[in-house]
Every structure is written in structure tokens, then in C-alpha cells.
């Protein structure tokens, strides 16, 4: 592939402020004139949204972890093939709210299926589409939970799991970041939204490829 865009993923536990930061980052990139695609997991395609409805349904609270991992990967496979790969091939910047690292943190560490197991399980879905940059928004798990319960989003199945689960997720994310420092940037997200947004922009802007062959100013 000669023309390839730039692939950014935003990761973090519940209540880390990912959604708002994705919006702010996207608007910065648009202002700078970059062609961008903003997307999210699980979901991002109509098939993905339908799978998301299954995995987040309260009636499926007893769903086995392996089955859930395959469903999540099914949505991801569709997402990569239909949205991410075509956008990257067209030279666009892709900003994705959660990606494989979420599966490794939540299912590998949180639900104790093992980081390697989940990585291998996702290999076929990812099909080589590895992020160029992963921004990990890090807040201590207790604080993220508090933020989430104040927000008006309805509590879904994944919110109802126990506290030690969130601690494992948090620590799993930090381990992932440590194991791949060239790709990960950890952003401490306990600050004000504008301050976090500024930290993110500083990290992203310095790494972006030049637009249409022109150098950045």
C-alpha cells in the first residue's frame, strides 16, 4: 500500500472522558484541514452496532467471557474491513474510540482470559491494522467510576461489574502502555477537560504526517 493515512486510537477505563476528547481532537484535526474519519468500538458499522446491542444487553449478563470476546472481535473485523482499512488506504486520519487494547484490558486482564489469548484471538480481525498512536487516558479506577455514575448515561451491563475488575483493567492498560512505549502515550486525565485536550493535541500534532505532501507550519 503506497498511500496510508494515520491511525489514532483513544483508550482508557470508564469515566476517563474519552468521548469528549475524541470530539475535541476531531475538531482540531478538521480545523487543520486533515481528512479524518471518527469512529468507535464496539460499533462503527451497522453490524457492529447490532453486535454491541447483544453484548451490552442486561439480559446477557451471564454470557461467557469467550463468547463475548468472539462477538467483540466479530464487530471489530467488520469495522476494520469496512471503515478503518479503506480510510487509511485513502490517506485519511482515523480516530477510533477504543480498539484492540480495550479487549486486551477488559477481557484479557479484567475478565482474566489472558492478554496473549485475547491478542491472538483478535489477530484475524485486526488484519494488520495496527494503530500508529494510542492515547491512554488514565484516571484511577475509583474516580472514573464516580464520574461515570454522575453522568446521565444509563448504566449498562459492563458498568455493573465489581470494583476489582476495574482495578485489573486499569493496571492492564498501564502494562500494555509500558510494553509498547513507541505506540502508547499515557495522558493523566484527572485534569480539566481543556487541559487534557491540550496535552492530547501536543502529542498528536507533533506526530502527524504532512498534509498533501506539504510540510507543517
Amino acid at each position: 500500500m503506497t498511500k496510508r493515512g494515520y491511525f489514532i486510537t483513544i483508550e482508557g477505563g470508564e469515566g476517563a472522558g474519552k468521548s469528549i476528547q475524541v470530539e475535541i481532537l476531531a475538531s482540531h484535526l478538521r480545523e487543520e484541514g486533515y481528512p479524518i474519519v471518527v469512529t468507535r468500538e464496539p460499533g462503527g458499522t451497522r453490524i457492529g452496532e447490532q453486535i454491541r446491542a447483544i453484548t451490552h444487553n442486561q439480559e446477557n449478563v451471564d454470557m461467557e467471557a469467550t463468547t463475548e470476546a468472539y462477538l467483540m472481535a466479530a464487530a471489530r473485523a467488520q469495522h476494520v474491513a469496512q471503515i478503518i482499512e479503506p480510510a487509511l488506504a485513502a490517506g485519511k486520519i482515523v480516530v477510533c474510540d477504543r480498539y484492540v487494547d480495550s479487549s486486551i484490558a477488559y477481557q484479557g486482564f479484567g475478565r482474566k482470559l489472558g492478554a496473549d489469548t485475547i491478542t491472538i484471538l483478535n489477530n484475524l480481525a485486526v488484519n494488520g491494522a495496527k494503530p500508529d498512536l494510542t492515547l491512554l487516558l488514565s484516571v484511577p479506577p475509583g474516580i472514573g467510576q464516580k464520574r461515570r455514575s454522575k453522568s446521565d448515561k444509563a448504566k449498562d451491563r459492563l458498568d455493573l461489574q465489581q470494583q476489582d475488575f476495574y482495578v485489573r483493567v486499569h493496571e492492564g492498560y498501564l502494562l500494555l502502555a509500558k510494553s509498547d512505549p513507541a505506540r502508547f502515550v499515557v495522558i493523566y486525565a484527572q485534569k480539566l477537560i481543556v487541559q487534557v485536550a491540550q496535552s492530547i493535541w501536543l502529542e498528536v500534532f507533533g506526530r502527524l504526517p504532512a498534509k498533501n505532501g506539504k510540510t507543517k507550519t
Partner: peptide, 10 residues
């Protein structure tokens, strides 16, 4: 929905 063959496998 143009489901992909890898999505089907999963």
C-alpha cells in the same frame, strides 16, 4: 450489510 468473511468466522 456486506458482511465480511472474517466477521462470519468470529
Amino acid at each position: 450489510r456486506k458482511i465480511g468473511h472474517i466477521t462470519e468466522i468470529y
